[in-house]
């Protein structure tokens, strides 16, 4: 099984809500009191990487998942 790690660096999060906004499955949510995003349910992440795309400060990381670079032409 794959070992996928999810990281959201709280100190880099500027509270723009963009990652929570684009997540299609609510794997990331936004804590309005703390004004920070957080992983609500990592298991439900489909690794679409939209959160990484839109984060202006690079605070969100998903590592260990298979990506385009892993494609082997058959």
């Amino acid at each position: 099984m794959l070992r996928v790690t999810f990281t959201l660096k709280e100190e880099d999060c500027i509270g723009c809500e963009k990652c929570a906004e684009v997540c299609p499955v609510m794997a990331i949510d936004f804590d309005e009191e703390k004004d920070k995003a957080y992983f609500l349910d990592k298991d439900n992440c489909i690794i679409c990487r939209q959160c990484m795309d839109v984060c202006p400060t690079g605070a969100v990381f998903i590592e260990g998942a298979l990506g385009q670079e892993d494609i082997r032409m058959g």
Partner: peptide, 18 residues
């Protein structure tokens, strides 16, 4: 191997990670 030759297969493997 059959999963790793295209993006749809990688997507499936990512989904089955647990």
């Amino acid at each position: 191997d059959l999963f790793t030759i295209e993006s749809a297969g990688l997507f499936a493997l990512n989904m089955f990670r647990n």
